[in-house]
């Protein structure tokens, strides 16, 4: 044993002084390119349709997202909608939008839009019901979220 101990050489210590710099750089990278995660999905991760004529969402603060899809542990035939963190009914859409409007100036309310994040296989019936609700409360700007398909 003593033989081994004697062989141990004093290695020069590796300088970790630049480690914070590296990590901070990574940190700032992630802070700038990412956005806050919205909500936990209570529906099966929606497979978004693809489209070519899409544009970026202009102002994320002025959008409210409605998810449409199949419930994770529910009937695989029925489409459900998710508002904020929970599964909701079409009749809840009204309050959801009115809630989102509180504390916003009149100009901003007009610029607010509703985003639909729906699964490819969703039937249009649910969407039509929601649209009717939105018309009732004058939330007329809507957007269908679609993955960008490259132009050939």
């Amino acid at each position: 044993m003593s033989k081994f101990k004697k062989q141990k050489k004093a290695l020069p210590e590796i300088s970790t002084a630049s480690l914070p710099d590296i990590v901070f750089m990574l940190l700032f990278f992630f802070m700038t390119v990412t956005t806050m995660r919205e909500t936990d999905l209570k529906i099966k991760d929606p497979q978004l349709p693809t489209a070519k004529s899409v544009k970026m969402v202009e102002d994320k603060n002025l959008t409210s997202t409605i998810y449409i899809g199949k419930a994770i542990n529910g009937d695989a035939k029925v489409d459900v909608i998710q508002l904020n963190d929970k599964i909701a009914q079409v009749s809840d859409v009204k309050n959801f939008i009115l809630n989102a409007r509180t504390g916003k100036s009149g100009d901003d309310v007009l610029r607010m839009s509703t985003l639909f994040k729906a699964d490819k296989a969703t039937k249009l019936g649910t969407l039509a019901d929601i649209k009717k609700e939105l018309r009732n409360i004058d939330a007329l700007k809507i957007s269908y979220v679609a993955a960008k398909e490259s132009k050939e």
Binding site: V54, M56, V57
Partner: peptide, 9 residues
Amino acid sequence: IDTVIARKL
């Protein structure tokens, strides 16, 4: 970042 098709009701 979401990409959308915007429409108006």
